[in-house]
């Protein structure tokens, strides 16, 4: 997408430069050619290819029927903090750090207490809004154990920029212990 954009930008600006500096080089091109060539032939295939790729890529990120149901972690946003809870482990206390199992997909169930927030861990994937009255789910996967930074991506008032959180991905073996043992 990046190189495509560079190429298109260069093409348009080169044509513009040529038309200003050496109009004679382009003067023989008929109006119809400009419109059909530039307006249809050039963008249409590119857009179709992009749209198909994006749709497939997006579908790929969706839960597929038949595959094992991943863990569901609940992320609840309020002004201005996140609370994560783990309903699949009875007695697991809610945490302010998001604990993830590494190497497997998890569903984050995102809800909001007061105003609209948005759940985003830039290195793990896209964002999803936390909207009062709605429940949204995003599927993420941390490939390797480690610490990832998460933020609130929707403006939510005075404490918006302080609403970051830490996401820790643990090796599957340690994972249950970590959440069970968290104060």
């Amino acid at each position: 997408m990046f190189w495509g954009a560079i190429a298109l930008f260069t093409l348009v600006i080169a044509l513009l430069a040529l038309s200003l500096l050496r109009p004679s080089a382009l003067a023989s091109i008929k109006p119809r050619t400009w419109i059909v060539g530039g307006g249809l032939v050039l963008p249409v295939p590119i857009l179709i290819a992009l749209l198909i790729t994006a749709l497939l890529l997006g579908e790929h990120l969706l839960p597929k029927p038949g595959s094992a149901e991943p863990l569901r972690i609940e992320a609840h946003a309020s002004q201005w903090q996140w609370r994560f809870s783990y309903p699949f482990i009875p007695d697991a206390a809610p945490t302010t750090i998001l604990h993830l199992p590494a190497g497997e997909p998890v569903d984050i169930v995102v809800t909001a207490e007061d105003v609209i927030h948005s759940f985003w861990i830039p290195r793990l994937g896209g964002k999803i809004d936390a909207i009062p009255g709605h429940t949204n789910i995003i599927r993420l996967q941390a490939d390797k154990p480690g610490v990832y930074r998460g933020i609130c991506a929707e403006y939510c008032g005075e404490g918006h920029e302080t609403m970051g959180f830490e996401a820790r991905a643990h090796a599957p073996a340690d994972y249950a212990v970590t959440i069970g043992g968290q104060p």
């Binding site: 044509l15 400009w34 307006g39």
Partner: peptide, 12 residues
């Protein structure tokens, strides 16, 4: 369409 109409206008 508009961008190329403008460039085409300049060029011709």
């Amino acid at each position: 369409v508009q961008i190329f109409a403008w460039i085409g206008t300049i060029a011709s």
